[in-house]
Write a protein that binds this DNA or RNA. Sequence first.
DNA 1: GAGGTTCTACCTACTAGTAAGTAATTTGTC
DNA 2: GACAAATTACTTACTAGTAGGTAGAACCTC
Lengths: 189, 189
Amino acid sequence: MARTQLETSQRILDVAERLVQTRGFNGFSYADIAQALEVTKASLHYHFPSKAELGRRLMERYEAAFAEALRGIDASGGSARAKLERYARIYAGVLRDDRMCLCGMLASDYATLPKAMKEAVKHFFDENERWLAAVLEAGRSAGELEFEGPAQDAARVIVGSLEGAMMLARSYGEPARFDTAAERLLASL
Amino acid sequence: MARTQLETSQRILDVAERLVQTRGFNGFSYADIAQALEVTKASLHYHFPSKAELGRRLMERYEAAFAEALRGIDASGGSARAKLERYARIYAGVLRDDRMCLCGMLASDYATLPKAMKEAVKHFFDENERWLAAVLEAGRSAGELEFEGPAQDAARVIVGSLEGAMMLARSYGEPARFDTAAERLLASL
DNA sequence: GAGGTTCTACCTACTAGTAAGTAATTTGTC
DNA sequence: GACAAATTACTTACTAGTAGGTAGAACCTC
């Protein structure tokens, strides 16, 4: 028994996460993970019986980490605009690590995902939208931000636009494109 | 010879296009196309020797059709805002056919694409950006649109935001989400 | 019968997944 | 604290099925 279960499954998830974020859920196989970690495919199946289960656990961990990051921003107690900027900076950081947002990637793989993963992807975006809408509404009430209509609609535009900008910036290999887009987007509020 | 080569390859491209737009480039196989058209895989390889070649030809046709659509908008001679609205309506139409933009889909598959396809994807976005920037600049000059900084930057925000909004709307199976996002986006100009 | 098109029949490589076995460790009992 | 039993974390060796791709025969249509 070389390593503890927890340690190993985290290492597996680390590799799988990067693979999904760079190649998509259909763009990698257990063999890729096995090679990266120098273990057998069978060993991976011991920790994650099926690829669907691996994907589900991946989402679970990712969403928890993201929620934690959002709580971190809330705790910082800055202005609404400052919070939005920190939110965008999370995306920028992922992009600079040559990755796409996990859920942005899975959104494009959506039609081919196992059911549990589909639900998890939507839940991720729902939570993002909810957090953003709260920040936006607070900012508007404070006279700090300006936008028309429901905060939820504005939140959806932000999530979609950041994901889209990220996708394009990554294709061009120019993370700065994302920064410019995010800046303009927030400036319009 | 039941059908002409042209006719058959177009039918193959039709099916392949829909498959890429719904499942991604790694989410379908020659077997899927063969089944849909009730021909053998070998027959597909006669028309498109490799999947990479099939993808390249797909892009070629798609970009030509898109360019034609843009020329159609130009020819209509409406206001800059009307042109942008018609541009967004192209995306909305694709979405209502349960599809993603071909190139938006390929942007997320980017890391796994054959080289020729990578170039074609970037070229598609370059052309969109160029067209949008021209419309935006003309609209600003005419005092019809209002935005800060280079038209190119604004154009990039639009392309990215529409692609992102499309991706999310499709995941939720709610095309109306796209319409709302597109409306807000254009209203901010 | 010539040429274009499609078929049968196949190949190799790879996919997710499994069965059976094993060395190291932990646990329970005395 | 000794020792057997159970558990953990793997491995080797395999499965059925699918991926993209190919050689060559058969089939149309002119």
